[in-house]
Design a protein around this nucleic acid. Structure first.
Lengths: 243, 243
DNA sequence: ACGCAGGAAAAGTATATACATGTATGTATA
DNA sequence: TATACATACATGTATATACTTTTCCTGCGT
């Protein structure tokens, strides 16, 4: 009763293909339940662990939804998640063939405000690092970068020379990021920002607010301000349903 | 010798945490080999299959690189493609528990400018649909939506009632999107925009420029303008987690 | 009718075991 | 010296088994 293809791929991949094919041809309707793991075991003649692995991977790839005690179902079509990628500005500038330079304005250890401490999800008020850097593309300031960094994860942040190494590269190299939060908004430049970006007070800026986590701990909080007239965030994206 | 946390999570998750933590603290250097599966078995007192699952999931999440016959290594820092998801504004508003309403200002067939025709990658100047809609959240205008639509893909666009069906939903339902381009910038509101969004002329706006393709054909071009003071694009993203 | 107990079913986890496959390395042989 | 082979070790796959957790349903008693 084995209707699996006889390619050279491992068995659990064959089971995945078998299931994907049958979803595609509508063998199982969108609402009804898929066969249980044990059904597949008898139908395909493979062990339950192998079926389980196939189903688990299809679930994590977003094709299926599984409920313990209930069964396995076809996942609804993906929500329209059209994605914007946010990259390292220094790398972007260099990739465009332009010259990148950065100027460190502030690099210090501070006691955070109550609000900032809250953003870090700190129980107690603890000291954090604070840096302000301006990034230039061909001597034109394009990004004002303010970062707050958790010293328990990145202990020597204030000892670095960020005119040589981009803060971003340093942080990425120091600690793995397990979660990222982004908020993009448009705001008028205040006097300080205007001065550093060499734009008029009140001029439109893109503000990118970013928090990164390492495990359950907030690692960094960044406020990246782009001169609206000189920079935009772009991406091109092909949705594809491959794992 | 079990140094795993005693939370309520499954064992393979604890092993994953254990490994991620030790990567974070630099216990294993970036170049050297991680302990083998059997090393973990004796060090942590769990079965090899459990270790294997932990390592496999960390690998598929991009933290590790494994070579059969060689060993397990720390993956180079990911190119930080941190992603912003852009969703259907009508759905978002409803998801927030607020009321969505839209007002159709323009719905017509026009002959495109040369520039627009170029954006559509048209060989010859061909007529296209044009719509302008304002989207309200609880009667407050938050988004001005201007769209240009390729009639060869969506023939009846100008016959629809977009005060009932969101343009977005209609387009998504009509034609599959195989590719999307996004550009986000910050611009001051012009007189027209200011009037429709009920903001001051020159106030900061988020401008989201979007092109969608169906196959090799440009399907739609959209200019979505958000009142900067009332809207921001946000996302939270876990590189490691599923779904 | 109603509520509850208990069992069946389904996915989730964990382990032991076996074998397969790929890589590096050392050793014997041509 | 150089090639071939043997071996050890690493990850990869597959299975059998056992137990857990969650959910749903059924039947019994009130």
């Amino acid at each position: 009763m084995n209707s699996l293809p006889d390619t050279a791929s491992p068995l659990y991949e064959k089971v995945k293909d078998y299931i994907l094919t049958n979803i595609g041809t509508g063998k199982w309707s969108k609402d009804s339940k898929l066969p249980s793991e044990n059904d597949f075991v008898t139908a395909l003649g493979v062990s339950r662990m192998t079926v389980h692995r196939a189903l688990r991977e299809l679930t994590s790839a977003g094709f299926l939804i599984r409920l313990q005690g209930v069964g396995t179902f076809i996942a609804p079509p993906r929500p329209q998640s059209t994605l914007i990628e946010i990259n390292n500005i220094a790398a972007e500038i260099v990739a465009r063939g332009n010259r990148h330079r950065s100027q460190v304005l502030v690099l210090e250890k501070i006691t955070p405000t109550k609000e900032l401490s809250l953003s870090f999800e700190f129980a107690k008020r603890a000291a954090i690092y604070h840096s302000v850097v301006v990034n230039f593309e061909n001597d034109l300031p394009v990004q004002l970068e303010e970062r707050f960094v958790n010293p328990s994860l990145i202990p020597d942040y204030d000892k670095q020379d960020f005119s040589k190494t981009a803060t971003y590269d340093y942080l990425m190299q120091k600690t793995p990021v397990t979660e990222v939060e982004h908020i993009i908004s448009a705001i008028p430049a205040d006097a300080e920002t205007a001065r550093h970006l060499a734009i008029d007070v009140g001029a439109c800026c893109l503000l990118l607010h970013r928090r990164t986590w390492t495990g359950a701990v907030v690692a960094t909080i960044s406020k990246l301000t782009y001169a609206g007239s000189r920079y935009s965030l772009g991406s091109r994206y092909s949705p594809s349903r491959k794992s």
